[in-house]
Simulated assay, not measured.
Amino acid sequence: MNFNFKEVLTAFMVLFAVIDIVGNIPIIIDLRKKAGHIQSEKASVIAGIIMIIFLFLGDSILNLIGIDVHSFAVAGAFILFFIALEMILGITLYKQEEGTSMNASVFPLAFPLIAGPGSLTTLLSLKSEFHTENIIVAVIVNVVVIFIVLKTSNRIERFIGQNGIDIIRKVFGVVLLAIAVKLFTSNIKFLL
């Protein structure tokens, strides 16, 4: 077993920044108002299962369509870059369609808000640099944090306030931007 606390911490921070559960509190509160109730446990567990399955099957899917992990990691770096720009500049580059026909705990909360394109791309990008078991631990810790945030979203919003949420988004945006640059530079050399 290749357990490495530094890898777990880095993978946790990257996923935490990409998922941006604290920054999504306003969206969660809005979903709660529209749907009436959000099952925090169900949303957290389903998002965690989607991420772990993709961590293991993502490579197979890529091999099936003829893409190597380094190419995917570079593409992931671009996605992280744009997510970071959204967080830092407070703009929306990608607008998701709202769908309220299904249970809000599963769609759109667990997928694609939590386990969406950004987090799934990030998982495979992390897999190109870190040991799988460390990423799994980071995913599980993130799922626990997501569950806590979902359960206490109203109290967190009242405590931190909108300005606090904006500051947290911008700080994690800068961290994510730096990670995107590192991911790009460490994988592009394998393609050139």
Rank of each mutant, 00 (worst) to 15 (best):
V145K: 12
V18G: 02
K95V: 08
F147T: 04
I50G: 04
V69H: 15
A77R: 08
I79C: 08
G36T: 05
E133D: 14
I135C: 01
P26T: 00
I88R: 01
L80W: 02
A84D: 03
I28C: 12
S128Q: 04
L109S: 10
S105N: 03
M102Q: 12
V74G: 00
I114Q: 07
V106W: 01
L126V: 14
E98M: 12
R32I: 02
I135M: 06
N63D: 15
K33D: 03
G99D: 15
A110C: 00
E133H: 13
H70I: 11
I136N: 06
I46S: 12
I25T: 14
F107D: 04
S44P: 03
S71R: 11
K127L: 13
I27M: 12
L31W: 04
F12D: 02
I27N: 11
L89G: 09
I28P: 12
N134A: 10
L126S: 13
I49K: 13
I148R: 00
I52D: 00
A47F: 08
S128Y: 05
S119A: 04
L123S: 02
M1F: 14
T92D: 15
V149N: 07
I29K: 10
I19Y: 14
L64F: 08
A104P: 11
T122L: 00
D20P: 10
G36Y: 01
F16W: 03
T10L: 13
M87S: 05
